[in-house]
Design a protein around this nucleic acid. Sequence first.
DNA 1: GGGATAGTCAAGTGGTAGCTTAAGTATCCA
DNA 2: TGGATACTTAAGCTACCACTTGACTATCCC
Lengths: 114, 114
Amino acid sequence: MLKRKAEAADRLFHALADANRRAVIERLTRGPATVSELAAHLGVTVAATVQHLQVLQDSELVRSEKNGRVRTCRIDPAGLRSAEAWLQRQRTAWEHSLDRLGAVLDDRTKESGS
Amino acid sequence: MLKRKAEAADRLFHALADANRRAVIERLTRGPATVSELAAHLGVTVAATVQHLQVLQDSELVRSEKNGRVRTCRIDPAGLRSAEAWLQRQRTAWEHSLDRLGAVLDDRTKESGS
DNA sequence: GGGATAGTCAAGTGGTAGCTTAAGTATCCA
DNA sequence: TGGATACTTAAGCTACCACTTGACTATCCC
């Protein structure tokens, strides 16, 4: 199995697969927030929120820095970009394969046609 | 614990979060394949492959039809498109929020400046 | 018909995810 | 200083996931 290279994508899509983590991202696209604010927004404990934030930071979807006792979280565009890149790569590969199929069908038509 | 409702985005990103399922997608972007071919490609049993395919079909990433005893699988672009759409939505929302921040900073500079 | 092929279904297993509570650390401020 | 605030860490619990094996159905073709 070709798993080594896949780890980043694993983490990335796994991070996006949870509704609460996506809610954090959606919230942060509208501006930075503290851990407590995010916890209130999600309706879970602060501890659970910290765990989600860890996952989001590991996949470069969120960054955060701590000032005094307050941790401020914001979007890290790197993760969003590489997720989009993977999907675009697949879509383009698929479209190319459709093009090749089209070319083959055209050739067949030409051969058998006239 | 609250049972999470399996929303579309949940299913979608969860489907993409598994390396074997992504390998199926990558394989299918290069053209259709049967269940056995996919199983051989992944190096897992046919039964496991069928389970992956079920997940991929539920999230509209893959379609399949059965002719005789052979099931042929192909890419369903709907899933890829809606995953891309979600990510793009977040990225543009984030960029707009940066714009608004920029505007505020400009105003502040104008007010306090000179 | 009957053996091989292609896929489906069900049950069981080890591992992991997401959540909680509880106890800790660091910082703020009256 | 000392109490309140903001976050961190650890342990434990339940549910779910990816995978297997084994039995089964449907189809092909000699």
